[in-house]
């Protein structure tokens, strides 16, 4: 397995280089170094000299991808792309265009993101599995039919509706939690209730349907028929056999998103004013802060690759028949 993991990590290098190149090209197609300088210097009375000075100070005075004036390897190494990309591979994110240490900011802002995503994931799993199992148990009854209809309706509604509706109903009309904001320590709890609840309700439709499908598939298998033939009660069949086997695809599906929990949620964090990594990325895009955008995309890619690797590993754990080679 170790050789498999090493091989997968080596495969990740060209993928990360590719992601970096694409991010770089896309960003600089829309924003030139002059635009970035103007954004940092402000919109009023900015002279060309000031722009040139800012670019020189921040390493944006070099060619973007290819330095035809440089000699030999310098054609590649003396470029904005190379100077900004190589250190990413040792997780040195450097400084943002406004001068902040990106690694420090990430280390500070991942906690608010996790404070939302982790409870959302855990509570969500419990709720979705409960509902899905209920629907599967009552399959082909009016409970199942109306449950699925409700799921389809709920998954058809935009997440924005849940956010604004949740803030309006729970925060504004019922006065039960703050509408938005964030605090540290136990004070954070009151701010997390609503985003977690909204996240839960917003995903209940799609997740419950998906899990129901998994459970129904399991319920049609021979081992379930055998269990019933042995005279086991429906409850025992459901919890001891269907649930256990159905959890395999569910958990492996969860493992892939585990590392991504750090990245947070762009819209939720924005609406609830949560200072997580999602809003960090949105801010960076709005401020044309390439250093942060590049770092966050790189980090996202690494975490995604890590998630896929963990999924593969988790398969071998939950299903001993699978061997990684």
């Amino acid at each position: 397995m170790i050789s498999y993991i090493i091989r997968r990590m080596l495969y990740a290098i060209p993928i990360l280089i590719g992601v970096n190149v694409i991010t770089f090209v896309l960003f600089f197609v829309v924003n030139t170094p002059d635009d970035i300088a103007r954004m940092q210097l402000g919109q009023k009375r900015v002279t060309p000299e000031a722009i040139e000075k800012w670019k020189a100070d921040h390493g944006y005075d070099k060619p973007v991808l290819w330095n035809s004036d440089a000699a030999a390897a310098g054609k590649i190494t003396e470029t904005i792309f190379f100077e900004n990309s190589v250190r990413l591979f040792v997780f040195d994110f450097g400084r943002s265009d406004s001068g902040r240490d990106i690694s420090y900011d990430i280390s500070q802002r991942m906690w608010p993101s996790l404070a939302i995503t982790v409870p959302s994931l855990i509570i969500g799993l419990l709720v979705y599995i409960t509902f899905a199992l209920t629907l599967a148990f009552f399959r082909a009854t009016y409970i199942d039919t109306w449950g699925v209809v409700l799921c389809v309706v709920m998954m058809s509604i935009s997440s924005m509706f849940y956010i604004i509706g949740g803030q309006y109903l729970v925060g504004k009309l019922l006065h039960l939690v703050p509408i938005s904001g964030y605090d540290t320590g136990t004070e954070a709890i009151k701010f997390l209730v609503l985003p977690v609840l909204v996240g839960l309700v917003g995903s209940i439709g799609s997740s419950t349907r998906w899990y129901r499908t998994i459970f129904l598939e399991e319920m049609g298998k021979d081992f379930v028929r055998t269990a019933r033939a042995k005279g086991l009660s429906e409850t025992v069949v459901l919890y001891r056999h269907v649930l256990r086997n159905g959890l395999i695809p569910i958990l492996t599906g969860v493992v892939v998103i585990l590392p991504m929990l750090f990245i947070g949620s762009l819209i939720t964090e924005s609406f609830f004013a949560i200072p997580g990594l999602g809003s960090y990325t949105i801010d960076a895009i709005n401020n044309q802060d390439f250093a942060i955008v590049r770092s966050m995309v790189f980090l996202g890619s690494v975490l995604y690759i890590l998630g896929l690797l963990l999924t593969d590993i988790s398969y071998t754990i939950v299903d001993p028949r699978i061997r990684l080679s």
Binding site: Q167, K172, F271, A273, S279
Partner: peptide, 17 residues
Amino acid sequence: SLEREAIPTWNKFLQGY
């Protein structure tokens, strides 16, 4: 306090916050 969206800001003003 940081408020990115206008609607929460407005509602919190109406609540006196």
